[in-house]
Amino acid sequence: MGRQMPRKHELATPEKRLTVRSLEDLVGYHLRRASVMDLQGSTAALADVNLRPVSMSVLCNVIEKPGATAAEICRVLDMQRSNIVSILADLEGQGLVLRETDETDQRIQRLYATKRGFDVTSNSFALLSAHEERLLVNLHPSERSELLRLLSLIWQR
């Protein structure tokens, strides 16, 4: 059975429509729309270096925290441990990271970026900067700084 159209008396009147909030009133709606635009552009930009935004985040964390474990990176990025396994395998397969067994505890694997990992990350930042320049072209540099500050207030609690 198909959906039936509402009867005329069930339709919202203009007066009732004015009392219902619009999606445009919700911060989350705007965050989601902006996030989709950013993710699409980031994904396209990173395709040239065979990375995705999440794998780029993992690689950056390996560079920033040499010797970190997968579990430590998962905590920093707030990701599930099972999700990082394939990402690390891909990064390792591309020669961007390597795993070394911890000297004091053979069960622990420490992560390190290779020279190629550093080079690809540097190139990736250039690609992402160009993407962000296109994305934020209508914002003044001071507005960009303020946007970063405000977004940080939301997720860094």
Rank of each mutant, 00 (worst) to 15 (best):
S124K: 03
C74E: 13
L139Q: 10
L148C: 14
E92F: 02
I108G: 02
S86R: 15
E72N: 05
A34V: 12
V20F: 04
L139A: 08
L51T: 05
S42F: 15
F125S: 02
L31Y: 13
H140K: 10
V58E: 01
I108Q: 02
Q80L: 10
L77Q: 07
Q80C: 08
L148I: 14
S55T: 10
R149L: 14
S145Q: 10
L128G: 07
R52A: 05
R32L: 12
N50M: 08
S129C: 04
L77D: 07
I154S: 04
H131R: 02
P14Q: 09
I63L: 13
K16A: 10
A89R: 15
V49L: 05
R52N: 07
L128K: 05
R144K: 15
L31D: 13
L136I: 07
G67M: 06
K16G: 01
R116N: 07
C60Y: 03
R107E: 14
G117Q: 08
I73F: 00
W155N: 07
G2I: 06
R134Q: 10
G28L: 15
V27G: 07
S55P: 01
S82R: 13
A89Y: 04
S55D: 14
S124M: 11
R107Q: 12
A89H: 11
L150V: 13
V85P: 00
V49F: 08
L151C: 06
P53C: 01
E15N: 03
S35C: 00
A45F: 04
V27I: 12
G117A: 01
R107F: 11
D38Q: 15
H9K: 09
R32P: 00
R144E: 13
A34H: 02
N138L: 15
R107D: 14
R81S: 10
L136D: 04
V120L: 02
V85N: 06
E64N: 10
P6M: 07
L147G: 03
R110K: 13
L139R: 07
R33S: 13
M1P: 08
R107P: 00
M56T: 03
P66M: 11
D90S: 15
D38Y: 14
M56H: 08
S57L: 11
